[in-house]
Amino acid sequence: MPDQSLDATAQTQVAAERKIRVIVAKPGLDGHDRGAKVIARALRDAGMEVIYTGIRQTPAMIVEAAIQEDADAILLSILSGAHMALFPKIMELLRAQGAEDILVVAGGILPDEDIPAIEAIGIKGNFGPGTSTQDIIAFVRANVKPERLAQPLPPLRTGGVAVDEPARGAQA
């Protein structure tokens, strides 16, 4: 283990400390999250900060989490086959927020014939079963936009994320 104080010295000298922040989310209704957890753990071990949202996420929940957490990337794990219903909605909500600079990567059970359509809406990676976690780490590192923090944000939208449905359990 390196000495703590010297770590601190080194950090102070370089001043800024940029960490890749990613959301790992499971959209839709399938509850099989072992794959998502393996990915989350692998990204953590690669030095990234992983915000794990858990299962049964709506597109609005995922996009709102990404906005609030200022994530560099969203990793979607889906096994249920509902990707063609959910993915376009996620991309639409991101666009509505002017958040196209966030990398969106998908993985899980994605039939080959759907992949062109998924890629056409701007979702990258599209990793299937058997993909090495190292490949996913390398892909995220290569595709997040390191300069996004220095760029001005798109014009003001007051009042937060436009939500297409009430949150579960929200009440007055």
Binding site: M1, K19, A40, R41, L43, R44, D45, A46, G47, M48, E49, V50, I51, Y52, T53, G54, A60, M61, E64, A65, G159, G160, V161, V163, E165, P166, A167, R168, G169, A170
Partner: peptide
């Protein structure tokens, strides 16, 4: 993690009910 510098941030999982409130 003191070894890799990475982290898994899981507190949101238990705060889902608050999502959607501006």
């Amino acid at each position: 993690s003191p070894f890799t510098g990475g982290a898994i941030l899981g507190d949101r999982i238990r705060m889902q009910d608050l999502v959607g409130d501006p």
